[in-house]
């Protein structure tokens, strides 16, 4: 008799059925039991394997069991203001085009053979893609505001053994998941370059689509944006028009699991990138390790990135936001513990 839950029972019982899954995709694409479809990680069949990878790489499970984890920026790291200089990177970019520039550079210099990115969706939700051409990277710039389980693309690589060198661009939950994969020696740290994207929450694709339809968006949008407060709107841009939707109307689409996430900047990434509030066409960049600094320096020297110090006001805003998110998540986690949900 098995007295402990199977991995699958754990991830299903504690995360998925509780509505806490954030569709990072860490468990998707590796086995036939879990799949991602249009915003949801779904169960195709139940699995009986006792100790399983799905449980071990799930970032939400990690938070539930081990608490909030790493701080946003540990000693030695730094925040910068940056933008890509070549036009091709800023054309599609949400803000400063820094992510596209970095990924493109890593691929073109052979430091990464493949990049794990998110496509634009179309028939359904955006999904993870494996990209090896720098040009393709450029076409995929911009924020999606939905979870897309893009790590499933990384899993496709892992299934066939360790990939040589790969760059993963993802949300904080995904950075945590990749670090859990590293801990399991599925992939060596030096083989994977992690670029995090700032995130306070992501919407669930189906809910978001339903809301957008209600708002009259009857096409697949090209671009989304949430301008800095106090505007409080969700900007949608499509082929046939632009929509300004009050952000509060969109909030019901936010994934329940995001409330549990303490991490706004992708603390487990080598470099994280986000908006630079009030400074158009720029990104905030958070560098955490030597590899990150080296890359930033190289890109500056080659004239691909312009890097400067992050203005004090931005820094203090950012730090408050980081702190608030961590505190909210910690409270939420405590609530769950006291309710006996965990």
């Amino acid at each position: 008799m098995q007295d402990h839950k199977s991995a699958f029972e754990a991830i299903y019982g504690e995360v998925i059925s509780q509505g806490l899954c954030v569709a990072c995709g860490a468990c998707v694409g590796y086995c036939p039991y879990l799949e991602y479809k249009d915003g949801k990680v779904v169960i195709i069949d139940s699995c009986k394997v006792g100790t399983g990878r799905c449980e071990a790489v799930c970032p939400q499970m990690d938070i539930l069991r081990n608490g909030p984890g790493k701080a946003a920026l540990e000693e030695g790291g730094g925040y910068f203001l940056s933008k890509a200089l070549p036009k091709e990177f800023t054309k599609n970019a949400q803000y400063g085009g820094v992510v596209s520039a970095m990924v493109s550079y890593l691929l073109s210099t052979g430091r990464a053979e493949k990049a794990v990115l998110t496509d634009r969706g179309g028939k359904g939700s955006p999904k993870g893609v494996l990209v090896h051409s720098p040009l393709e990277v450029i076409s995929l710039g911009g924020s999606r505001y939905t979870a897309s389980a893009s790590l499933s693309a990384l899993n496709r690589l892992l299934k066939d053994g360790q990939p040589q060198r790969v760059v993963v661009v993802g949300l904080p939950c995904q950075m945590r998941a990749v670090s859990l994969m590293e801990k399991r020696s599925e992939i060596r740290s030096e083989q994977v370059f992690k670029i995090g994207l700032f995130c306070t929450w992501a919407m669930e694709y189906r809910e978001m689509s339903k809301l957008l339809e209600k708002e009259g968006v009857l096409e697949t949008p090209i671009r989304f944006d949430i301008p800095p407060p106090p505007k409080n709107i969700f900007l949608v841009e499509g082929q046939r028009g632009k929509w300004e939707i009050p952000l509060d109307r969109m909030r019901v689409a936010i994934q329940k699991g995001c409330a549990l996430c303490p991490d706004m900047t992708g603390s487990y990434a080598d470099i994280s990138v986000g908006a630079a509030e009030g400074i158009e066409g720029h990104n905030t960049v958070c560098v955490r390790d030597t590899r990150g600094f080296e890359l930033l320096e190289e890109l500056t020297q080659k004239g691909i990135l312009k890097v400067e110090a992050l203005p004090e006001a931005n820094l203090s805003h950012l730090k408050t936001a980081i702190k608030n998110k961590r505190e909210r998540a910690t409270t939420k986690l405590k609530e769950r513990v006291s309710h006996g949900d965990i």
């Binding site: 991995a7 590796y30 086995c31 699995c47 299934k159």
Partner: peptide, 13 residues
């Protein structure tokens, strides 16, 4: 076979 990533999917399911 029985390992994680399959769990005898073809014969079991």
């Amino acid at each position: 076979g029985e390992e994680c990533g399959c769990g005898r999917y073809c014969t079991r399911v």
